[in-house]
């Protein structure tokens, strides 16, 4: 299994996936404080055209909060990018038939699935750390005196949301036959969540709640409001892992 993990890692590096993902997340991380820093200037340039339509721009103040607002807004983009990039992680191997050799050489299917899980979750965690780290570093550099509440927990929630979607990605990878089906499955899960989010009673329990870390920093939501969603996400991640493994055991490679 170690050899298989090493092979996965080498593949990620050799195909340049690691570098490309790293650069993308780095730029995303960079954009948050940069946009915050540029907002006053943008407003300044648009002042005249806004004045014509009757809007008056007053003094614009930006602080660390502006940067973190961007952080939560762009978080969804990060999740989308990682899902698109990793959509083929298992499926492409079915198509090429490379897994058949590994299985006939005696590596158990569970170990294959488990290695893939480690790779996917590991990549997401690494990239999220890059994203968070860059934003954190720049924000702390530009606005050293601003304190933002509950940052780490809010960021952790977003990370867990990514894990939740990736767990479904792996589950659908075990079921589906091509990349399109996997992405469709993950999209469907997201769509259902957005739909259920209209029911006020359910909002508390949906993993979608995890993306609202901003409200935690603003003080409109409390940590307790997140607990049910966190628990449900953890259960789904575990359940997807177990079901995925069971399905993967039976399927044709």
């Amino acid at each position: 299994m170690k050899a298989f993990l090493r092979k996965e890692w080498m593949e990620t590096v050799r195909t340049g996936r690691l570098l490309i993902l790293g650069i993308i997340f780095f730029i995303f991380g960079l954009m948050n404080p940069a946009i915050a820093k540029l907002t006053p200037w943008l407003m300044e340039t648009m002042k005249d055209s806004l004045a014509e339509s009757g809007m008056v721009v007053g003094e614009v103040t930006v602080n660390a909060m502006t940067s973190w607002t961007q952080f939560y807004k762009n978080g969804l983009m990060c999740v989308i990018v990682i899902v698109l990039m990793l959509g083929g992680v298992l499926v492409n191997e079915y198509m090429k038939g490379t897994l058949v050799q590994v299985v006939t050489k005696g590596l158990s299917r569970r170990k294959i699935f488990f290695s893939k899980m480690i790779t996917v979750y590991g990549l997401w965690t690494l990239m999220y750390l890059v994203y968070f780290g860059v934003t954190y570093g720049y924000t702390a550099y530009f606005w050293p005196e601003d304190k933002v509440e509950a940052l780490v927990f809010g960021a952790f929630c977003y990370w867990l949301f990514g894990m939740f979607l990736l767990a479904f990605l792996l589950l659908f990878s075990a079921i589906a036959g091509n990349v399109g089906q996997v992405l469709l499955g993950v999209g469907a899960v997201t769509a259902v969540m957005f739909f259920l989010n209209y029911v006020p009673k359910l909002q508390k329990y949906l993993p979608l709640r995890l993306t609202e870390g901003l409200n935690l920093s603003l003080g409109t939501l409390k940590t307790e409001d997140f607990v049910p969603a966190v628990i449900i996400s953890c259960i789904s991640v575990a359940a997807c892992g177990i079901i995925g493994m069971a399905v993967f055991d039976k399927r044709n490679l």
Binding site: L19, I20, I23, F26, L30, P33, A34, K37, Y138, Y141
Partner: peptide, 13 residues
């Protein structure tokens, strides 16, 4: 501080 890392990333890619 924004431009330098961007340039580095660009050249790396």
């Amino acid at each position: 501080p924004f431009l330098i890392p961007l340039i580095v990333a660009e050249l790396a890619l």
